[in-house]
Design a protein around this nucleic acid. Structure first.
Lengths: 231, 231
DNA sequence: CAGTCGTCAAGAGCAGTGCTCTCGTTTCCA
DNA sequence: TGGAAACGAGAGCACTGCTCTTGACGACTG
């Protein structure tokens, strides 16, 4: 992404970008399986085989779109978090929730590519997981900040995690340092609850059930925030 | 499905069933997009065009599989619920959770067809929604039973739903009669949390994060049960 | 029993897909 | 300036969903 040296490299970078842009538009309008290398090539006035100079296969193009998508939603989440007062932990959590939902509603197909069922035959390379945790890191920091500030309501009735989960807690705590195990697992529950809601809303499970989606969502996320102990 | 009248109708019903069986196997092994009418026909020793006598299009075959899937998971949930003592509401909730998760883990592609991103270009007909609510009805009955039995812990700190959501509550209450609004929306949150977890686990979001999946799942679902007020 | 009508499997064919290979051409670098 | 690498174009392979036509078989009706 730095200043290109040769002219060839410059045009190559530009064409690569144009390919992903067109692909993203096609993805947005027709979904993942509607993404066609030939159609992208057609729109670029090129021949389909020329695409393979830039992406070895359709899956590699998909991977590029997935990484871009994770970075985009991660950035949206980071900005939403940064716009809130740092000590308003509940407000930060709600802002993050709305950022995820708004982003998803604006690009349902792209969201589905990230958090929906995996594209058949497609195996996500390890490159994607690095970008995938950006939003999770933000969430972890909120809980961690609240915990460090002593701004978490005392754990109520929910049961403590069994000891076996201690090592799993260790893996999660890399994102959420200084958080006791019980809070940590409730945070995981809230996190999955957020994406579970967005999935349900986006994939049609709320059809004929909920009409005031945004209000119901905010109410539900408030509840999950309180469940974690945020206030 | 009753006793067939003519021989023609009988063989037709049998062939239709054979098609869906083979299609389900292909679906299980290769996912939704890997489902090919031609491959099904090949396995049956028929010609692809003959398939269209039984299913007008590939989407109609998909619809049949989706309806079967909803019924299958609904039946699994119903059985898991029925196997628990009727007044053990928390136990019934946990049994339902594990039924959903176990069913999903056993047939990830079929689950993805039901609760994952919708197949591009495929628009679910209204027939599917009727079958889609079977498991939800079971869950609603559990909460409803607990509420009627006075076996719900008093609502704690989570906020009450804003008045605007009253009409949405009305729609949901058809499944969950006699349940106050605040409990009802917490139940919806728990419900989405269940499927959110299963989605995350199945679609790879828990890779490199959680290892003791079943225990973490049970712990999380216990927490959500307590969140609703079940004990 | 004979005739007709609907149902069926088969086959050819269309438009589209991902992907591979080859063939000249252009660009870059030593 | 020459050789190597990168490039776009084109043909072609195997595959997909789907349509249309053809001929045969089966089941009801006169």
């Amino acid at each position: 992404m730095t200043a290109s040296r040769t002219a060839r490299e410059r045009v190559r970078a530009e064409l690569t970008r144009e390919i992903t842009d067109i692909a993203r538009r096609q993805l947005a309008s027709q979904g993942a399986s509607g993404l066609s290398l030939r159609a992208v090539a057609r729109e670029m006035g090129m021949v389909s085989s020329a695409m393979y100079r830039y992406f070895p296969s359709r899956d590699d193009l998909l991977t590029a779109l997935i990484i871009d998508g994770y970075n985009a939603i991660g950035e949206a989440v980071e900005q939403a978090d940064a716009a809130q007062p740092r000590d308003d932990h509940l407000g930060r959590w709600l802002a993050v929730c709305h950022a995820v939902r708004d982003w998803a509603l604006a690009r349902p197909h792209e969201y589905a590519l990230l958090y929906g069922s995996p594209v058949p035959g497609y195996q996500a390379p390890q490159d994607t997981v690095a970008a995938a945790v950006r939003d999770t890191v933000v969430f972890g920091r909120i809980v961690s900040d609240a915990c460090l500030a002593g701004a978490l309501s005392a754990p109520g009735s929910p049961p403590a995690p069994p000891g076996m989960l201690a090592e799993d807690a260790g893996a999660v705590r890399e994102i959420m340092p200084e958080v006791p195990d019980d809070v940590l697992f409730r945070a995981v529950t809230a996190w999955t609850g957020l994406y579970g809601w967005v999935n349900f809303e986006l994939f049609g499970q709320f059809n004929n059930v909920l009409t005031h989606r945004r209000e119901a969502f905010e109410h539900s996320m408030r509840g999950l925030g309180a469940y974690v102990g945020l206030y």
